[in-house]
Design a protein around this nucleic acid. Structure first.
Length: 902
RNA sequence: GACCCGUUAGCUCAGUUGGGAGAGCGCUACCUUGACAGGGUAGAGGUCGCAGGUUCAAGCCCUGCACGGGUCACCA
């Protein structure tokens, strides 16, 4: 691998050494705002220095492998890459913490056409072409270019915080991978699955290379339908044909009609005189022709149309190429020689009209193929190229999906997408008329024309010439999951240990180009799927839903986002921003929301650390007496741990994000920390110590859960918190702790929360400022509830801001009290001066009506025999409980109304 | 033409084993409470595209339709 940029990162490690202190806290006080800039770079350097991302080969651990979809070495990473790699980073970080020997293998793709085009454009600026330099010099230039961009990409990976094993970085043109490419080519050739032949291929006249079918993008273009009359040689009339590409008529070598077509039967075998070039061509009969389309007669240009080519084969027609490789007309075009194909079209239309041959032009929208790379209109072109025979390979891939060893697509529907394509696949044109790429390992004998295919030239090299062309970049990408592991050396350590990989993460736009090809090559050469799962995500779009593109200028540079909000915020936004397999719109506000979340976490930790005193990891002790809030948050932590773990295994990161967000913001920050203040600011030293332990423990575990989403801030906080080990990247993944799991605390907490909420609500409704202390009188519905309320009255006092609080089964409201009925208790607030009895009665009447509606709804449900009989007992019981509760509450409200009325 | 996806709060979107609708932003009112104003509290806002069906029960399953987006194929 290239060391350049990597060393830049490594260099910074030295200034970071003071952090290597065995995990002790260096500073206690955190600044009040989280600043990603000052922390992110240091931590990345620290991670590399600790070599936490390198696969260890540790036999005691199970391997877990992902290979990165290699980005084009010619470009910068965009938000799509950031999304794609963040998903992989999350998976590998989690697995590493779970104790797997993780290999996440980085690398880049040489991207033949794209890179060559860039280098050529640079040369053009210097007034040169690649031919001026020659092949060798041009490749030198390209390698320089590659080094520069590879550095750039590595720096971007670093900024994103990706835990890549750089010691195993690969490049598709590396010697090892090139050997794999040759090996595959040779083997397929020997098997007859690679062949060379003259066929109609997709030709890009701009970059002057052949393309495969999927590199052609079809766009609807407003064109025209040109109707022409070709005269019969015997002067007995003419035959009418139509075309969208009139310039191809110069290459016509027949006219075809359907053999059953009564209109033309008598003309079959006759000769037509092709206008302009005055070539004599035959009228042939062929089933391919659709009698109902157009005139029912088709001009045949075997050298410029795939269907015509087939017809030409069936009828032994001459193939006349009328264009050069750059899209200009050649010698066969007679008077049009040298003209560009589109200029020729204009001129030939004029000329034919003048001659009366072309008699009608109709507007016609038709789909025109464009080069995916250069944008040029693709010309169907007769040319000698190398092809992969796809049917046998596709069949193996299709069969694989019927076996237990199938590739699991996530979301599952993409398997259909994949199968549909592979079931209808055509042979794959793999030769490209470029210099930057894997040169085709075929030599042609200068005299005999024999073909030699092998790793090296034949011994009498001077008598042979190597094929000038290179292979489609995807031909090498298809081997990526195993060529990077040392294949074709099947005894290579990495290949044996890490192949097949566990999951491939990529966008749906690349299923055909890459995923499908990796699968059939994987089966053919390794006898198994190259990955167990394929996680498919969508595309990043702009805020209006448009694809980001250079031409629209609506692209957002992930580095700019990171500079503004930090990598953690960007990552969190990317992986929680959409449903699986769906596109994602980019919104700055949502990145900002993620940043706010990070800051919230920061400040919660800041609070904890300010109150942690010198608690060390060993001093964390959860075995003493606990408050409700402590037991509750530990239980909620357990629930969150379980949810996060199982949802992550299912790649449901959006849901994982929701769970963590809710747990951290609502449960930890809004409730637990607020409640912890009671003990932390109180006098009871034992309780304080317990709260510190719980807080430290919960935060430490929470940072671990969040680490895959937000690696930087979690490492920073984790290092400040009491912890064990040198880095959160290798900390243990949280597991459910049965000792501290008390589901009943959830309900107790719900009761306390309901009390607090209902008082806040009443205050707002009655315009009583939260800062104003009030007297509060509670009447529990049972002794059990009374116990819970009394045990937790400190919480109620604080959060309801009471001047006095009584909790008693015998409690009675003062005359002028506001009443609130909740499940399990009545609450009275004697707010004499604020109360108007009439208004209070009205308020309670509203409540009465609301409860009545609820009662009716539940009773309706319970009155349904089918429901009671067929619904699960648990569901029915829950409804009965609700009925009881609503009726009870309604009764209490009713009583209070009656009291007030007296 | 075939297939896939979407249609849920003002906007953008979550909602996976079918059991009383959620988030972010925006909006309203109030709050400098000793982690956080990048914050807190309370609140408004939804016939979950339409029509059928299955089911005790449908945003979720099935069928059809409408609109929007996408993929592939055809296009002389």
């Amino acid at each position: 691998m290239d060391e350049g940029a990597f060393i830049l990162i490594i260099e910074r490690i030295s200034c970071n050494r003071l952090r290597k202190d065995g995990g002790k806290i260096m500073t206690k006080e955190l600044p009040t705002k989280y600043d990603p800039k000052t922390t992110e770079e240091n931590w990345y350097a620290y991670w590399l220095d600790g070599r936490y991302f390198e696969a260890t080969g540790d036999k005691k651990k199970k391997p877990y492998t992902i290979v990165i979809p290699p980005p084009n070495v010619t470009g910068k990473l965009h938000l799509g890459h950031a999304w794609d790699t963040t998903l992989q980073d999350m998976l590998t970080r989690m697995k590493r913490m779970q104790g797997y020997d993780v290999l996440w293998l980085p690398g880049m793709d040489h991207a033949g056409i794209a890179t060559q085009a860039q280098v050529e454009s640079q040369l053009r600026d210097e007034g040169l072409s690649r031919y001026d330099l020659g092949r060798e010099k041009f490749l030198e230039k390209s390698w320089e270019w590659k080094e520069e961009y590879a550095d750039h990409i590595r720096r971007q990976w670093a900024k994103l915080g990706l835990g890549l094993d750089y010691s195993r970085e690969r490049f598709t043109l590396d010697e090892g991978l090139s050997r794999a490419v040759r090996e595959v080519f040779i083997k397929l050739y020997k098997k007859g699955l690679i062949y060379r032949g003259e066929y109609i291929i997709n030709w890009d006249p701009k970059t002057k290379t052949a393309l495969s079918d999927i590199e052609v993008i079809h766009k609807d273009i407003d064109g025209a339908f040109y109707h022409m009359k070709y005269p019969l040689k015997d002067g007995s009339g003419h035959i009418e044909v139509a075309t969208t590409r009139p310039e191809t008529m110069l290459g016509d070598t027949a006219v075809a009609v359907h053999p059953e077509d009564e209109r033309y039967k008598h003309l079959i075998g006759k000769t037509v005189l092709l206008p302009i070039v005055n070539r004599e061509i035959k009228i042939v009969a062929d089933d391919y022709v659709d009698m109902d389309f157009g005139s029912g007669a088709v001009k045949i240009t075997p050298a410029h149309d795939p269907n015509d080519f087939e017809i030409g084969n069936r009828h032994n027609l001459e193939r006349i190429l009328v264009m050069n490789e750059d899209g200009s007309m050649n010698d066969n075009a007679g008077p049009y020689k040298g003209m560009d194909r589109f200029d020729c079209r204009k001129k030939i239309v004029e000329d034919l009209q003048e001659q009366g041959v072309l008699f009608k032009i109709e507007d016609h929208v038709h789909s025109v193929g464009h080069s995916e790379r250069s944008g040029a209109v693709v010309e169907p072109y007769l040319s000698t190229q190398w092809f992969v025979k796809m049917k046998p390979l596709a069949e193996q891939a299709i069969n694989l999906q019927k076996s237990d060893g199938k590739v699991n697509f996530v979301p599952a529907r993409f398997e259909k997408t994949y199968l549909r394509w592979i079931e209808n696949i055509h042979d794959w044109c793999i030769s490209r008329q470029l210099w930057w790429g894997h040169r085709i390992p075929a030599w042609y004998h200068k005299e005999t024309g024999d073909i030699h295919v092998g790793h090296e030239a034949p011994k009498d090299e001077e008598n042979w010439e190597q094929d000038e062309d290179v292979l489609d970049t995807w031909f090498s990408s298809a081997l990526w999951p195993f060529s990077t592991m040392g294949w074709p050396d099947e005894d290579a350590e990495d290949y044996k240990r890490y192949y097949p990989t566990d999951v491939l993460v990529t966008g749906y736009d690349i299923i055909y180009f890459w995923v499908a090809r990796m699968i059939f090559q994987g089966i053919e050469f390794t006898d198994q799927r190259p990955f167990k799962d394929v996680l498919i995500h969508g595309l990043v779009r702009d805020s209006e839903g448009r694809k980001m593109s250079k031409s629209l200028g609506n692209g957002v540079d992930p580095m700019e986002v990171i500079d503004k909000y930090g990598a953690d915020a960007l990552r969190y936004f990317l992986v929680t921003g959409s449903a699986p397999g769906h596109d994602l719109r980019f919104y700055w506000e949502r990145v900002e929301a993620a940043w706010n979340f990070a800051n919230k976490i920061w400040n919660a930790s800041r609070f904890a650390l300010m109150n942690m005193e010198d608690l060390t990891y060993d001093e964390i002790n959860l075995d003493g007496e606990m408050q409700l809030a402590d037991k509750w948050i530990l239980t909620r932590l357990n629930e969150t741990v379980e949810a996060v773990t199982t949802l992550s295994e299912k790649y449901e990161f959006g849901e994982v994000g929701n769970k963590l967000y809710h747990f951290i913001w609502d449960d930890v920050c809004d409730w637990y920390i607020e409640m912890a203040k009671l003990t932390l600011y109180g006098e009871d030293e034992n309780a304080k110590q317990m709260t510190r332990s719980v807080l430290a423990y919960v935060l430490e575990r929470t940072m671990c859960l969040l680490h895959p989403f937000m690696p930087f801030i979690t490492e920073e906080i984790w290092q400040h918190l009491p912890h064990e080990g040198d880095s959160i990247t290798v900390a243990s993944w949280p597991e459910k702790q049965e000792n501290w799991h008390e589901p009943e605390t959830i309900n107790e907490m719900k009761l306390i929360q309901e009390v607090i909420r209902s008082i806040r609500n009443l205050r707002a409704e009655m315009n009583v400022a939260p800062s104003k202390p009030i007297a509060m009188n509670m009447k529990p519905a049972s002794e059990q509830t009374e116990l819970i309320l009394k045990k937790n009255e400190a919480y109620i006092q604080r959060f309801c801001n009471t001047s006095e609080l009584t909790i008693s089964l015998a409690a009675k409201p003062e005359e002028k009290s506001v009443t609130q009925v909740i499940s399990g208790a009545e609450i009275y607030l004697p707010l004499e001066e604020l109360i108007n009895i009439e208004e209070e009665i009205q308020r309670l009447n509203k409540e009465y009506d609301r409860l009545t509606k609820e009662v009716e709804r539940v009773q309706k449900k319970l009155a349904n025999e089918g429901f009671v009989k067929k619904a699960p007992a648990k569901v029915v019981d829950e409804e009965r409980e609700k009925e009881r509760d609503y009726i009870e509450k309604r009764k209490l409200v009713e009583q209070r109304i009656e009291e007030l009325k007296q």
